[in-house]
Simulated scan of single mutants.
Amino acid sequence: MTKEEQLLQNRLIELSEWAYSRNIAVYSDFLGLNEQNILHSTPKGLFASSYTLIGGYDNPERQMARFSPDALYYEEISPPLQVLAITPVNKRFAEDLSHRDYLGSLMNLGVVREKFGDIVITETVTYIFVTREIAAFICEKLSKVRHTSVKCQVLDTADIHYEPRTQEISGSVKSVRLDAVLATAFPLSRSKLTPLIEGGLVYVNGKLITSNGYSLKDGDIISVRGHGRLKYLGSQGTSKKGKQIIQVLKYI
């Protein structure tokens, strides 16, 4: 573990202790996949209180850790999470903006990465999930993304109704191994998937997995750096040749 990773682990343990000692729910900043892996890999006995993850919608990639005491009654506060709804001022002259364009505009404002979560681009609006403390600042300062003039509105997560676009894919595999399921979802051979897995680019439910033969469970969320995400839905039976027929939900 690097010095930076150790500092993050210590910080997460400290947040869990605050939740326990103060009898309140305590939240971290947004955690990427590497940070979530540190969280999940930390022995549970080091945390004084339990945790869950939130990111503003179903199955986000970047998430906050919410530490809460195990007592039946404790002080609950609203999650420090809001959503920015970004739309072009004039749709006629709007560019086709990418995730990188929005990311660059936020960085140019001096906003550090841990203060905002997923950037979700739809046909009509872009949602950016942010910590409550910087929501108003970004909306005040963000007037352009690349060359497109934009307007911004601060919303609570309950005010949006976003469902990711998905594609359901079926396939047959000898066993529910990680590499076999990934080969069903992505147009890559097993030989090309192996370096991705062994190279530390594949996460299951936020935990780094480096074994090709890792056995998946129904509902597991798999993230492959540079290729996308999918949800393993489970086995639907066996084929005449004795293979398992599986279904996955690919986020597109």
Rank of each mutant, 00 (worst) to 15 (best):
L193F: 06
T166I: 08
L230Q: 01
V173C: 12
T131P: 02
G32M: 07
L103A: 10
A135Y: 00
G45K: 00
T184D: 04
I252M: 12
G45E: 00
D156M: 08
I138S: 01
D156P: 06
G206H: 01
V145K: 03
Y127L: 08
E133M: 09
K240E: 01
A71N: 14
D70A: 13
T194I: 04
A25Q: 08
L106G: 06
V130C: 00
E198I: 09
S21I: 13
G199N: 14
I160T: 05
G199T: 09
E75W: 04
F116C: 14
Y214A: 05
K91E: 13
V224L: 06
T166M: 04
C152T: 02
D156S: 12
V181C: 15
G226N: 11
A48R: 09
S189Y: 05
F129L: 14
E17N: 02
Q153R: 03
N90H: 08
G226R: 14
T52M: 06
E95Y: 15
C139Q: 06
Q36H: 02
V154A: 06
N212Q: 07
G56I: 00
K91I: 11
L178F: 08
R22S: 10
D220F: 02
L12S: 00
E133Q: 15
T87L: 04
V120N: 11
D70C: 11
Y203H: 09
P187A: 14
A48S: 02
L39H: 11
I221G: 05
I246T: 12
Y162A: 03
R165A: 15
K240V: 13
E95C: 11
K115A: 07
V224G: 05
L233I: 14
L249G: 10
D96R: 14
S98W: 08
I24K: 02
S105T: 12
D70N: 14
A25N: 07
S211K: 07
T148K: 04
E163I: 07
V202S: 08
F186L: 09
K207P: 07
I77S: 15
L46P: 15
L188D: 07
T148R: 00
N205V: 01
F30Q: 04
V83C: 05
I24W: 00
I160L: 09
V130K: 00
S170E: 14
Y20M: 01
E123L: 08
E14D: 12
L103G: 07
V150N: 00
I245E: 00
L84S: 11
G199L: 12
M107T: 13
N23V: 07
P187C: 11
Y214V: 04
R146T: 11
D156W: 10
Y74G: 13
K240F: 01
K192Y: 14
P43S: 06
